[in-house]
């Protein structure tokens, strides 16, 4: 495990983390912003709450929604002036996603990212060899496109059940 993988929960912020765990990813509502790994730190001061987040992809259009949802949810729960700060280092990686979150993705119909598979062939790589179909669990699947409905997903097809499905690609 990388040191940065699990954010340290500071004293007095447990209640804030609990609320954050109820805020869904706006595009994949079965997992929370915490499970996705975008929340990196939370600081609570006398009259200020600061939530530090990092984007999944630089251009992810959901990030603004993450920010708005975090601010409105925390403020509605009575936390003082909520500020969301964006950091870029360390860069977000799918390795931060918990096993629980991976299982939720699979049940939702998205094949979860495979852990620690970033060091593949650099110039040419047709994706992980065995991405199991989230519908029928067959390993006979093929990559249709490295880019899917959002930047974080690739499109695969199952040769057994013939379904096309999203694969949350590793980054």
């Amino acid at each position: 495990m990388e040191a940065a993988q699990v954010p340290v929960i500071r004293e007095n912020t447990e209640a804030i983390w609990e609320v954050l765990e109820t805020i869904p990813d706006p595009e994949i509502p079965v997992i929370s912003v915490v499970e996705l790994g975008v929340v990196r730190d939370v600081l609570l001061e006398e009259n200020k709450t600061q939530v530090i987040i990092t984007p999944t992809y630089s251009g992810c259009p959901a990030m603004k929604q993450f920010e708005d949802d975090i601010v409105s949810t925390l403020e509605s729960k009575g936390f003082p002036t909520v500020e969301v700060k964006m950091v870029f280092s360390p860069a977000w990686t799918t390795d931060w996603m918990t096993n629980v979150a991976r299982e939720k993705l699979r049940r939702y119909g998205i094949a979860p990212p495979q852990k620690g598979s970033q060091d593949k062939g650099v110039l040419f790589d047709s994706g992980p060899k065995a991405v199991n179909c989230p519908q029928c669990n067959s390993s006979a699947t093929e990559l249709l496109s490295q880019f899917g409905s959002t930047a974080c997903k690739a499109v695969y097809k199952c040769k057994d059940c013939q379904e096309t499905f999203d694969y949350f690609k590793c980054i």
Partner: peptide, 19 residues
């Protein structure tokens, strides 16, 4: 930080174009 973040995305762009 910008470069490290961008590198991950660029790797996918590069593979796509090379292929």
């Amino acid at each position: 930080a910008f470069a490290a973040k961008s590198l991950k995305e660029t790797t996918y762009h590069m593979r796509h174009a090379c292929e």
